[in-house]
């Protein structure tokens, strides 16, 4: 599919690489996102304010008092046609997750029943899944993380929950997510991480970034409590979550 440039008013336009959720399409989105950031860091592309990656498109936000669409689009087109390096996952993070407390995992039995697997098998599939953060949105720090084992794919709950606790780990379709806040939600909750996806005490408060690769690491309740205490105290160094190759 050829790249389309879609009108989003006079402060943005969307560079659409495809209409489906696919790794090669998202790789081009992230490639352009990174390329524009590099150009701006080098003092080029004046008037670009920020870029918003999604599964299949990159929104380029600009200041119409500093540039025009007619001047800016050809510069972006040149970056696209010049070839985008598939952005390698910037880092791999191991996300500790406690699946064993029924309070943390209200939907685990139902997921097991609907997929015809044991609880252990569901947990094993989730921890074995190779996840990639495609996009953050809907609320600050909420990541859409693609790569769920196909055996676990289910539609969203028909009756969303009014309140899903912060740091709940849910699945729906081919994705997993981690709730950054207590909020309503329709994903099937399999466990809870002691990590906070959004910690406003930090200068950079959002843990995940588009392009991250994620693995879930099963932990016991005792380890959950120990990490949760560190997180609560603001003592957890996020860089310790990175898995070195």
């Amino acid at each position: 599919m050829s790249v389309r440039y879609l009108n989003c008013g006079d402060t943005a336009f969307s560079v659409e690489f495809g209409s489906t959720i696919a790794p090669d399409i998202n790789a081009r989105v992230m490639g352009l996102h990174a390329r524009i950031a590099a150009e701006r860091a080098a003092g080029r592309l004046p008037g670009v304010v920020e870029t918003i990656p999604s599964m299949r498109a990159l929104m380029v936000c600009y200041d119409p008092l500093a540039t025009t669409r007619a001047a800016l689009q050809p510069e972006i087109e040149a970056l696209v046609t010049g070839g985008l390096e598939a952005a390698a996952p910037s880092r791999t993070l191991a996300i500790p997750c406690c699946y064993d407390d029924p309070e943390f995992a209200p939907d685990l039995p139902e997921v097991a029943e609907r997929t015809g697997m044991t609880l252990e098998a569901v947990i094993a599939r989730h921890t074995a899944s190779d996840f990639h953060v495609y996009v953050l949105g809907f609320m600050p720090g909420l990541a859409y993380v693609v790569g769920l084992a196909p055996e676990l794919e289910l539609p969203r709950r028909s009756q969303p929950r009014v309140r899903v606790p912060r740091s709940s780990v849910g699945i729906a379709m081919n994705m997993t997510t981690i709730y950054p806040f207590d909020s309503p939600g329709g994903w099937h909750v399999l466990g809870r991480t002691p990590l906070w996806m959004f910690d406003q005490r930090r200068e950079q408060p959002v843990l995940l970034a588009p392009g991250d690769r994620l693995q879930f690491r099963r932990i016991e309740r005792s380890e959950y409590d120990a990490i949760a205490a560190q997180v609560e105290a603001g003592m957890l160094d996020w860089s310790t979550l990175e898995v070195k190759a």
């Binding site: 989003c8 943005a12 599964m55 498109a57 936000c61």
Partner: peptide, 11 residues
């Protein structure tokens, strides 16, 4: 319905 994409102000 679309596959989610960015939302400009005034969309």
């Amino acid at each position: 319905d679309i596959v989610s994409d960015g939302i400009a102000p005034g969309a």
